[in-house]
Write a protein that binds this DNA or RNA. Structure first.
Lengths: 345, 345
DNA sequence: GGCCATGTTCGGACTGTCCGAGATTTTGCC
DNA sequence: GGCAAAATCTCGGACAGTCCGAACATGGCC
């Protein structure tokens, strides 16, 4: 049957000290006489005392805020990119909306900080965050990889909402591109498409360590009924290069980021969805109705926020020993660019 | 300047009710008269009241335990697999050790539950967990994919320490095979190996949605200096089939799970590390010293545990809306099966 | 009017922290 | 040796919510 576990207060009674001295001693506060601290630690060990981290986190938060209108604040750091495309700006907005909603649910709030890439801005950010008492930092995606090594990470918990960044290596949250493409290709196979073609900008694949291309190949190799057409991966698209590729390999469905590809397919005589299909790899980029993948930026922002808050609750600042990547699969979005069922055989 | 945020108690004073009635009303308890509940909710809205989830989590834990020797208990569910290989048993043990250490740090403890695959065992597990007051469930890896859909997930938060399982879809934590293989291949390239060969059991690649093979291909395609040798992916290895592949394609380094491959390489005249290299894809499987990847089961177990506890603290049971996968990269382990620096050109 | 069941509201108790303040000790000066 | 100041050491107020047993109120029945 259950017996009472030793608590701070019961230890204090045993030692003839106040619960504050015991707490301070166990936390290594320099206020406590070293001899007293040693006695306390020994007694705690002998009693089998185990600290409750949840109680510690709450009491710390309560005491720090001291009755003011406290809400933990998270900084959403957005790197200044004047020429950021519209879809990327929308993606960022969705990320922040997701972060804000989740932060509110968990008793926090989010404030945006726009910063440049130059090191001078990073140091300024450091002092701003410290003066505001902000310890949680959400880093929004950046096309160029920013260098944040000069931020004093011992004071902050940070998380990327982008694929892995290394300077410094923090936890990250992003879409599961690999798995989402596999699922999309599976869905297309069920719809009777046997010649899928992939269209990528080189840089987009590189940023994800080639996951788009790798998933595409893996699917082809594991499904003998699928014709292994080579993907078109180029620095910059041209209508001509696309047309050459399209005519030569005759894909029956094209997967690409830009819906501009639909125009190019139609220029080659395709009649969507009668003769060919199209799938966008990021429906935030579409400029016309189509089927595709919703990379779910709101869900990503929400998840990043809850992981960050969990870190703060565990009082974990600094660069993690083993940074992890959390991925969420994209959500399929139906559209008028695909047939609705497989043709009769 | 800061002003005091409304709290449960201040709302109660305003309404002339007890703080319990206000708390019950806001939580939707049926104990509260509907008219009173409506008044409370309206007043809370007008005052801008915001609940503190951390306080709620702690107080709930304190009240539920009611002074007993409470420690949150997590169940580590291990599926009964009598013919599980030794390395897999070691992997499971490491996972549990990591889970136990992290659970202790966070004020929880872990208990193992061995269960069969049959549905009847799942229902029994359900009642055991409920009677024990256990809400957090860590699911250890299983070679066959178990079906846990019949567990009453509304009462539990669960997490897989394996690659994605779908019945039901929960959050999961596993090694980042794709990224780890890319990093390993990069390291081998730096050491001057230009003809890496990959040896896989088909089932091992399938389980990971072909991530081993995909990473291998992606690396070859993105590094023109690397000869694109086809991997050897078979149902079951034979020395003869390996020898044929090895003699035909002449890899200068072999990456495989089993160190048995070293014997086969030596049978073909290889002299490690003088003439060829070897890298294990899971050093827990090695039966002799070699270089390789440490998939870090302890770190995986620890991370799974902290994610699960964070869910419990947020009172999130049930099947998540968007199950995520958290991956941690493997740690490189040096060994005597590789040259220590690139040969002079 | 008393009793019982149901509905509604209340209150005890709480696993730790921060920091201002009080008590005690130590040090330096006359 | 006494006194004042500084340093050291320890203490205590206060705490953003929850659970569930208990108290109180109400209505129906005998």
């Amino acid at each position: 049957m259950a017996s009472t576990a030793p608590t701070l207060r019961s230890l204090a009674r045993t030692l003839g000290l106040s619960r504050t001295t015991v707490s301070d001693a166990l936390r290594g506060s320099p206020r406590v006489d070293p001899g007293t601290a040693a006695r306390v630690k020994q007694a705690a060990k002998e009693a089998g005392y185990r600290r409750n981290p949840l109680a510690g986190a709450l009491m710390s938060e309560l005491r720090r805020s001291r009755g003011t209108a406290f809400r933990g604040v998270l900084a959403a750091v957005d790197f200044n990119e004047p020429d950021r495309p519209g879809y990327a700006a929308r993606f960022h907005r969705e990320l922040v909306l997701g972060a804000e909603a989740r932060a509110t649910e968990l008793g926090f709030k989010v404030e945006k900080f726009a910063v440049g890439h130059a090191g001078v801005f990073v140091q300024r950010l450091d002092s701003i965050l410290q003066s505001r008492g902000i310890h949680g930092v959400i880093l929004l995606p950046a096309w160029d990889e920013p260098d944040l090594s000069n931020l004093d990470w011992s004071r902050f918990a940070g998380i990327y909402t982008d694929y892995i960044i290394e300077r410094p290596a923090l936890h990250s949250v992003c879409s599961d591109h690999y798995r989402s493409l596999l699922a999309a290709l599976q869905r297309l196979a069920v719809l009777g498409y046997h010649r899928p073609g992939l269209l990528l900008q080189k840089r987009q694949d590189e940023r994800l360590q080639y996951r788009w291309g790798a998933a595409f190949r893996a699917f082809q190799e594991s499904h003998p009924a699928i014709r292994p057409l080579p993907p078109l991966i180029v620095e910059t698209f041209t209508r001509e290069e696309f047309a050459r590729w399209f005519r030569r390999y005759k894909p029956d469905v094209v997967l690409a980021h830009h819906t501009e590809a639909i125009d190019w397919m139609e220029s080659c005589g395709a009649d969507l969805p009668v003769t060919h299909g199209f799938v966008s790899l990021n429906v935030l980029m579409k400029t016309r109705p189509c089927a595709g993948l919703d990379l779910q930026p709101r869900a990503l922002g929400a998840r990043a926020t809850e992981l960050l808050i969990a870190q703060l609750h565990r009082n974990e600042t600094g660069i993690p020993d083993w940074p992890s990547t959390t991925t969420i699969p994209a959500r399929w979005v139906d559209g008028p660019t695909l047939r609705t069922k497989a043709p009769a055989k």
